[in-house]
Amino acid sequence: MLFYLTTLNLARFLKEDPPFIGEDEIDVQTQQAIDAWKHAEFLCRNYLLNGLSDTLYGVYSVKKTAKELWNSLDHKYKAEDAGAKKFLVGQFLNFKMVDSKNVISQVQELQLIIHGIHAEGMVLSESFQVGAIIEKLPPAWKDFKNYLKHKRKEMSVEDLILRLRVEEDNQGNEKRTLNPNAAKANLMEHDRGSKGKNPKHKQGPKLGPKGGIAKKPKFQGKCFNCGKMGHKSSE
């Protein structure tokens, strides 16, 4: 809005008070100057009101001059900016990295908070940013955190992120090396489930031609030893 009013040559009315002229000093030229000032100030005030939402228009339309209206808006939003600064500082101080999430993505989240702090006019030096990122590394990175703390050479934020990315890749490779059979086991379980049956399971009894359990046929002839019917031969 300030830029817009500046292009219209109306921004000066955000700071100027109405001209004070005694009654005995009014002439034609002075009256014309006063009327021109009032007209320009009227435009400035209504350009401001036109930029507000309907709800805010009802609140601020009671302001009589552009200067009064501008000061009220400036006071309101400066107070909100101060609250935003405190909120960003709280976010930065309370930010903690966890082992369950990707470290690089968490570092990027922290960088967004730092960018917001800079946008609010609170500057953090690069060495402070590097130290803060190192201090907020998750518990599983304790050894690497101590290693970074003991390095004497100054690092930029970009150098630190590069080191963290390499270390994260190395940790992922070590996990895969220590447990190489995990993927094979998962594959075997998947294959077994897709077939529906375990090939090692014992099969049930064989069924006869009519669906019943097949039985050995009884011997119906005479026994060669005793001559009785229904006995099996010793052969």
Rank of each mutant, 00 (worst) to 15 (best):
Q171S: 12
L48K: 00
G212R: 07
V98I: 13
S125K: 14
L2R: 04
R45S: 08
I161W: 09
Q203G: 15
E154V: 07
S61W: 11
T55P: 11
P205L: 15
L160E: 03
R192P: 01
K218I: 03
F13M: 11
R45Q: 11
P180A: 04
K216R: 15
L162A: 08
L5Q: 01
D27E: 12
K184N: 09
G172F: 03
R165M: 05
L164D: 00
E168V: 03
R165C: 07
N179Y: 12
M155K: 03
M229E: 08
A119M: 06
T55L: 15
L187E: 10
P217I: 05
R176M: 07
Q203E: 15
I114N: 00
S53V: 15
A182Q: 13
S233M: 13
E154Y: 05
L5R: 01
K206C: 15
K76S: 04
I34M: 03
I26T: 09
E168K: 00
A84F: 05
K197Q: 10
S127C: 07
E126M: 09
D17Y: 13
G193R: 10
E120A: 11
K195A: 12
I34E: 00
G196D: 02
P217K: 14
E80D: 01
Y60Q: 01
P139F: 07
E167W: 03
D17M: 08
Q171A: 06
M188W: 05
Y77D: 04
F219E: 09
L88Q: 04
A11V: 09
E25M: 15
N198V: 03
G116E: 03
H118I: 04
G212T: 11
H150W: 12
W141R: 04
V123H: 14
H115E: 14
T6R: 05
K200C: 15
K38P: 04
D159A: 12
K184L: 14
Q32H: 13
N146W: 07
Y147I: 15
G211N: 04
N181R: 14
Q111G: 05
N173S: 08
A82V: 08
R12Y: 14
V130L: 10
I114S: 00
I133D: 00
H231Q: 06
F3I: 12
L56N: 11
V28A: 05
V28E: 06
L93K: 11
E23I: 14
L110V: 00
T7V: 07
A84S: 01
H75T: 10
N146T: 07
I161S: 05
A82M: 13
K151C: 04
L124T: 08
A119H: 04
K78S: 14
V103C: 02
D99M: 06
V130I: 10
K206A: 12
K228L: 08
A132C: 04
D159I: 15
N9V: 14
G196L: 06
L112H: 13
N9W: 04
G204Q: 12
W141Q: 03
L124M: 06
S156E: 08
R163Y: 06
E23D: 09
G227S: 11
L88H: 08
K78A: 08
K228T: 08
L5G: 01
T55W: 08
